[in-house]
Design a protein around this nucleic acid. Structure first.
Lengths: 202, 202
DNA sequence: ATACGAATCCCCTGTTCAGGGGATTTTCCC
DNA sequence: GGGAAAATCCCCTGAACAGGGGATTCGTAT
């Protein structure tokens, strides 16, 4: 077992918890993806537990690299609840499991066993809101003009103001605006901007 | 010393790290604010280290409660880098120090000493990006009611709908809304939600 | 005790938005 | 060149919002 995280605290915590699980042997820890690769090369662990958000190289990229170069090594991704939207990316890049940083010892144990047997493990709290998961992945597809208009709306400009900036009729801007509302499945500007912010579009 | 965090892992990690500091004695841990209050009452620790984001009652509210009811107990706030925007709120609510979860043992030691002597401690990484600090400081101070209203606006509810939810008149909601617009220095909902998203308020 | 902020409530006016309904031109791919 | 999607334009109605103006109550901190 190899643990990767840029927070010493999480490293310590994870180590302590893992040391209480009989069948687990921690071969090392790493503070970043470079160290992680070194450790994988040196110790050939069965499983790597890695944080997602790390400076320079993210856990997602690390997972991809491990899958490509050390196919036998399984990866379990770990993140905070707020970063749960990266799950799909993580799984696409070869993660065999996903746990929240709020996990208990029992859940870690379960996850490790599960992954060791070649199955996919997901934190229970995550299974619940599947519709949210799907929703996260499906950020609506916007045309370039719609994106322009969305940005200007978010800046607080009104339809007439936007029309002037884009050298088009206010009616046109309003059309785009309505399409945006439809695509985001909201019914006013507040909801629109919130969704857009969520997807990082503004 | 009392440690408060909803993640068992962080709890373990922090405990391990603190146990390596000679002059520190950890009297207990708590998984939420309720437990924390109990522990404070029972053990009267010198310092409480608390996470900011916790279910039900946040670290911010916990800090306020401790300051009001157990003035002699100092609080050190702890959060991830992404949650750093709460610093100002935390300090306003009586936190004597602020550390990132990515801290090393050395920094924790420094922070504890510093706070114990009655000084204010801030993680070094935070001092650096001052323009961001300014941004944080210029995040308008909202009342609790305003925050509630802001959240509901961001969910796409209209004034009448919000009024119904909060059992107040639509006029009242509109007043709060107008105050929000003023405080954020914007002149419509779009700008409001964008700013709010920027400060992590929605 | 009182002064202040927070929260509540009310009104008026004009603008903007939301939800319908259409139609025409551009652009770009097959 | 035909077709589809994008972008443009237009109208109508009613709801919601924005920007003013006020006023009262309630707690709490000084």
């Amino acid at each position: 077992m190899l643990i990767v995280d840029d927070h010493p605290m999480v490293l310590e915590g994870m180590q302590t918890m893992l040391s209480q699980i009989s069948f687990v042997h921690t071969v090392g820890v790493a503070r970043n993806a470079y160290e992680a690769i070194e450790q994988v090369k040196a110790h050939d662990p069965d499983i790597v537990i890695t944080d997602i958000s790390m400076p320079e190289i993210s856990g997602i990229e690390l997972a991809a690299k491990i899958r490509n170069e050390y196919a036998k090594v399984k990866t379990i991704a770990m993140s905070t609840f707020n970063e749960r939207s990266y799950i799909s990316q993580m799984v696409q890049n070869g993660a065999a499991g996903y746990i929240l940083k709020s996990v208990s010892k029992e859940e870690i144990e379960e996850a490790i066993l599960c992954v060791y047997e070649g199955k996919l493990y997901m934190s229970l709290e995550l299974e619940l809101n599947k519709q949210e998961q799907q929703r996260i992945n499906t950020a609506p597809l916007l045309t370039s003009r719609e994106k322009e208009v969305l940005l200007l709306i978010s800046e607080g400009f009104t339809n007439p103001q936007i029309a002037e900036k884009l050298f088009v009729s206010p009616y046109t801007v309003d059309s785009h605006r309505k399409n945006l509302l439809t695509k985001f499945e909201v019914n006013n500007t507040a909801g629109l901007i919130k969704q857009a912010a969520k997807y990082g579009l503004v």
